[in-house]
């Protein structure tokens, strides 16, 4: 069974979001998502400075078998991206919630976080497939 961390918020498109102490929000994809994708071989991330609208396409994650778009679960400006994924995309599989993070946003409307799924609600969605 895949891990769903209780302290995170989730989008039904399988991204997770974590509010950091400095008010930025880190985004990645869930353990359930990496498991469904299989071996990740390439991650295309947004550029630092990009303004993303809620639900906008933020990048692509490619596994051996398929390409999947990743979406911005909340709106905001990209303040950092995980450059380590360029050389080691498999980190998304081995450590999706920590070292396998994708990018960090400065949220334009922090209340959007409250409208994301909590762990229990996401578990329900993930189990339905």
């Amino acid at each position: 069974m895949s891990e769903i961390r209780s302290e995170l918020k989730y989008a039904s498109s399988h991204e997770w979001a974590r509010l950091e102490e400095d008010g930025t929000v880190t985004i990645g994809i869930s353990d359930h998502a990496q498991e469904a994708l299989g071996d990740v071989v390439y991650v295309e991330l947004p550029e630092v400075g990009t303004d993303l609208a809620l639900g906008e396409e933020a990048g692509v994650v490619e596994s051996v078998k398929a390409a999947s778009d990743i979406y911005a679960p909340i709106s905001g400006a990209v303040v950092a991206v995980n450059e380590a994924l360029e050389a080691a995309p498999e980190t998304v599989n081995s450590n999706p919630y920590d070292d396998g993070w994708f990018y960090r946003l400065k949220p334009s409307d922090p209340s959007e976080l409250d409208r994301l799924l909590d762990a229990d609600a996401y578990r329900g969605e993930a189990e339905e497939g």
Binding site: V41, Y42, E44, E62, A66, A67, E86
Partner: peptide, 9 residues
């Protein structure tokens, strides 16, 4: 052969 980044599909 794609020597740059990305995956041909």
């Amino acid at each position: 052969v794609l020597e740059g980044r990305g995956v041909l599909r």
